[in-house]
Simulated scan of single mutants.
Amino acid sequence: MREERVMVTGDAMPSVRRFGRRQAIGVGAGGAFAAILVACGASSETAAPAKPAATTAPVTATTAPAATKAPAAEPTKATVAAASAPKGFANPNLIVSVDWLKQHASDAGLRIIDARPAADYEKGHLPGAVNLPVVETFDPAQAKNLPDTKEKLEALFGQKGIANASRVVIYDNGKETPAARLFWTLEYAGHTNVAVLDGGLKAWGGSTSTDAVSAPAATFVSKLDPSKLPTKGQCALAIGDPTKVVLDARSPAEFRGEDVRTKFGGHIPGAINIEWTENFGSATQLREPEALTALYEAKGVKKDKEVYALCQTGQRSSVSYLVLRLLGYPKVGNYAGSWVEWGNDEATPKTQGS
């Protein structure tokens, strides 16, 4: 064990449009104290990019795509929890399996959301999926990938066909951060029926589409939950508090202060390091709940503590947030400011080493 040094410095059928071959190719080529603080941000994280300029709205198809089956009754949380979860999680309604989604993709009230960048979506996506790149939820006025304002999130989600009553299933490629980050953002905004596709697109194993899907506009009324978005001040107060845990989802090298991506390296004193990739098995699906429970409890991240998650920019830590919610942790938050805020502040305490 290396010695630690503490340094204190001063979402009715969607309409579709088929991408032209030339257009699709052109775009593709261009382009978590007792709280647990989870450190976030993928290893390739950068500050939130400016939101892309608006593009021409998709052309509504003149004929609706052939239905594969008659729409089923709108799914409820109870039915989803009973049938959708691929594993025995405490909160099974927060995750769906590929098999479940293939059977229920045409259900009334279900909105499938692709959280990947637009260029990836155009190359191929799940049939019927609406593209909502997670970067569109960031506040362009902030440099720390913080979520946008209440009003802008309401407008964005409504434009993507996400209503308060919608059953939302989000995916990315699998073993990535966009789906988990969008999941967290929707929960922060007050949506109560959101899930992530276990394994993502790489686990799909079925046909994909290059049709651009435009969902009918919906009304989403946000009720922001501040407990989902702990602040730098709350994280500072969590230091030494036995009722809270700071969970850092970054790599061990970042945690120790060897991989420095801000003015100062290291970690918040007392923080626990569980890298976000440890939540996945050998493929793109999450590990079994028993293994995940053992992983967190062995490190001292237990359900009787309040959890604050962080990483570099609140993205990798969103995976930790999702997993802890699945495991039934009652108090979990994602510190979106994360190390890019903490590590650039001369006044915050920092520790190097293991």
Rank of each mutant, 00 (worst) to 15 (best):
1 M>P: 08
3 E>C: 05
4 E>K: 15
5 R>G: 02
6 V>F: 10
7 M>S: 07
14 P>W: 08
18 R>C: 07
22 R>W: 11
22 R>P: 01
25 I>C: 11
28 G>V: 12
29 A>L: 09
32 A>T: 12
33 F>I: 05
33 F>G: 03
34 A>C: 09
34 A>V: 13
38 V>F: 09
39 A>M: 10
43 S>H: 14
44 S>G: 08
44 S>C: 07
48 A>F: 05
48 A>G: 01
50 A>V: 09
54 A>W: 14
57 A>S: 05
59 V>L: 04
61 A>W: 06
66 A>H: 07
71 P>V: 09
73 A>P: 03
74 E>Y: 07
74 E>D: 05
77 K>H: 12
79 T>N: 15
80 V>S: 04
82 A>Y: 11
85 A>M: 02
87 K>C: 01
91 N>W: 04
92 P>S: 14
92 P>C: 11
92 P>V: 12
94 L>I: 08
95 I>W: 13
95 I>S: 06
95 I>A: 10
98 V>H: 00
100 W>F: 13
103 Q>M: 08
104 H>E: 00
105 A>Q: 07
106 S>R: 14
112 I>C: 11
114 D>R: 01
117 P>M: 13
117 P>T: 14
119 A>G: 04
119 A>N: 10
126 L>N: 00
126 L>W: 08
128 G>H: 05
129 A>W: 03
131 N>A: 10
133 P>I: 00
134 V>M: 13
135 V>E: 13
136 E>R: 07
137 T>P: 05
146 L>T: 13
147 P>R: 01
152 K>F: 03
156 L>G: 04
158 G>I: 07
163 A>D: 12
163 A>Q: 02
163 A>P: 07
165 A>F: 06
165 A>T: 15
168 V>H: 07
180 A>C: 01
181 R>K: 13
188 Y>T: 01
192 T>S: 11
194 V>A: 04
201 L>D: 00
202 K>E: 06
202 K>S: 09
205 G>E: 04
208 T>M: 12
208 T>D: 12
213 V>F: 12
217 A>Y: 06
218 A>G: 04
225 D>P: 08
227 S>F: 05
233 G>A: 13
235 C>Q: 13
236 A>N: 04
242 P>D: 13
243 T>K: 15
244 K>E: 05
248 D>Y: 14
252 P>F: 07
258 E>M: 10
258 E>R: 14
264 F>R: 11
268 I>A: 05
272 I>V: 15
273 N>Q: 10
273 N>Y: 06
275 E>P: 10
277 T>R: 14
280 F>S: 00
285 Q>N: 03
290 E>T: 05
292 L>W: 10
293 T>E: 11
294 A>R: 15
295 L>A: 07
300 G>F: 12
301 V>H: 03
307 V>W: 00
313 T>F: 04
314 G>L: 02
316 R>I: 03
320 S>P: 10
320 S>W: 06
320 S>E: 12
323 V>Y: 13
329 Y>K: 05
329 Y>S: 00
331 K>E: 10
331 K>W: 08
333 G>A: 03
348 T>F: 09
349 P>I: 04
350 K>R: 14
354 S>E: 12
